[in-house]
Computed example of a mutant assay.
Amino acid sequence: MSKKVLKLNFKNEKGKTKTITIANPKEGLDKAVVQDSMSKIAGAKAFSKEEVALYETVDSAKYYTTQSDDIFDNDAE
């Protein structure tokens, strides 16, 4: 079974990378749409920890796909 996520990477006020991970993202998003959405998140300045803005500047966005193959799953029975 494969799963796809979209990872939105920002830099915080101290230059450290902070990531927002979105499960089951819309397929085929283009750079302009994603960058605009990320800019709105950064511009809102709604998220902070210990008085440091977590999503200060837009850094990058990437789709990631993971593949897992079950050997067994006790919860499925």
Rank of each mutant, 00 (worst) to 15 (best):
M1H: 12
M1F: 05
S2A: 14
S2M: 13
K3T: 12
K4F: 12
K4P: 06
V5R: 11
V5T: 13
L6N: 11
L6Q: 10
L6M: 10
K7I: 13
K7Y: 01
L8C: 06
L8K: 08
F10N: 03
K11Y: 14
K11C: 03
K11A: 07
N12E: 04
E13A: 01
E13F: 02
K14G: 00
K14F: 03
G15F: 01
G15A: 01
T17G: 00
I20P: 05
I20H: 01
I20C: 00
I22G: 04
A23G: 05
A23F: 02
N24S: 08
P25V: 04
P25I: 03
P25H: 11
K26R: 09
E27K: 06
E27S: 11
G28P: 02
L29H: 02
L29F: 08
D30I: 11
K31T: 13
A32L: 15
A32R: 13
V33M: 15
V34D: 11
V34Y: 08
D36W: 13
S37F: 11
S37N: 10
M38P: 04
S39G: 14
S39Q: 15
K40R: 10
I41Y: 01
A42G: 14
K45D: 02
K45Y: 00
K45A: 08
A46V: 05
A46H: 08
F47K: 03
F47I: 10
S48A: 04
K49N: 09
E51K: 10
E51A: 14
E51I: 07
A53I: 15
A53L: 13
A53D: 14
A53G: 12
L54Y: 09
L54C: 08
Y55S: 00
E56Y: 15
E56F: 09
T57M: 00
V58W: 10
D59V: 07
A61P: 07
A61R: 03
A61F: 09
K62A: 15
Y64Q: 15
Y64R: 11
Y64V: 15
Y64D: 15
T65G: 09
Q67K: 15
S68H: 07
D69T: 07
D69P: 00
I71M: 14
D73G: 02
N74K: 08
D75E: 08
D75I: 00
A76N: 09
E77R: 03
